[in-house]
């Protein structure tokens, strides 16, 4: 049990059932998904097409003027292959309109803003189309906090949130995400030449092995060391998980009453459904 399992047939069966159940119990039949050209959103969209029917999945392509042209081309490949609905909404006017006032904003601010503009478009389109927003964040990036809060991390339901990137790749290959997308280097494409692994300083396959033992199998630090992971790597990842905990929780609410939301007012999200 020290290897990340990639049982694609079973994952596919479960995730398709998940999407179908969780969407339909809300009384809706459709989802919108931001299609970036990367493997995560491609997989989410294709699973949704299988669960709900291709006519019930709307892919929104949201390029910025500096986006790598391959990104949109790859997103279009997914649209063609799966036959889902699609539309293109450039985020350039709304992003540039804002940063005209703050020309000295750095790449990180601009990147976060882009992610959040895309979120507002997805939520608006979801209302227009009577649909839920389908998430695309995987477990690796959620644990590392490698995503924009209220940006790409925002969704109504997320089929990939318990899958490591390694599992996303394996499942994507199995369900026929175009090979060029599965094989390419992951990038948020927020600025030119950005790659996830370059920015993080380690590869997904490396960190997934560590996360799987640390999180899923509850290895202690001593056990992780004995398994061959350098101490600095273990410490770095443990700190990343701890420091990004806020991204995985609701905002902190000051408790003053007897019953405070999410503390002693506890209901499931699917309450009544």
């Amino acid at each position: 049990m020290t290897q990340i399992p990639t049982n694609a047939a079973l994952l596919r069966q479960i995730l398709v059932a998940f999407i179908r159940n969780e969407v339909r119990k809300t009384g809706l039949a459709r989802v919108v998904v931001g299609l970036s050209g990367g493997v995560d959103s491609a997989l989410s969209a294709m699973l949704a097409a299988e669960a709900l029917g291709r006519e019930n999945v709307l892919a929104v392509l949201m390029p910025y003027k500096s986006s790598n042209p391959d990104s949109q081309a790859h997103a279009e490949l997914v649209v063609q292959k799966s036959g889902i609905e699609s539309m293109v909404v450039s985020i350039t006017p709304q992003v540039d309109g804002y940063f005209e006032r703050y020309p000295d904003a750095d790449a990180r601010r601009r990147g976060n803003k882009m992610a959040r503009e895309r979120m507002t478009i997805l939520y608006d389109q979801s209302m227009r189309w009577n649909a839920l927003v389908l998430g695309t964040s995987n477990k690796t990036e959620l644990l590392l906090g490698y995503g924009t809060l209220h940006g790409d991390m925002a969704s109504a339901i997320n089929p990939l949130g318990d899958l490591y990137k390694t599992q996303v790749w394996a499942l994507s290959e199995a369900i026929g995400v175009p090979e060029v997308i599965v094989k390419k280097e992951p990038s948020a494409d927020l600025w030119s030449g950005q790659t996830d692994e370059g920015e993080l300083g380690f590869t997904y396959r490396e960190v997934d092995k560590l996360l799987y033992l640390m999180v899923d199998q509850r290895y202690t630090k001593a056990e992780l060391s004995a398994a061959g992971f350098p101490e600095s790597f273990i410490d770095n990842i443990a700190a990343r998980i701890m420091n990004s905990q806020f991204k995985r929780r609701l905002p902190v609410i000051a408790k003053v009453s007897q019953r405070t939301i999410d503390r002693d007012f506890r209901y499931s999200r699917d309450w009544g459904k």
Binding site: Q3, T6, L10, L11, I14
Partner: peptide, 12 residues
Amino acid sequence: PLRGIVDQQSQD
């Protein structure tokens, strides 16, 4: 609840 994916095992 279903949980625990294992390779070469057709159910959780």
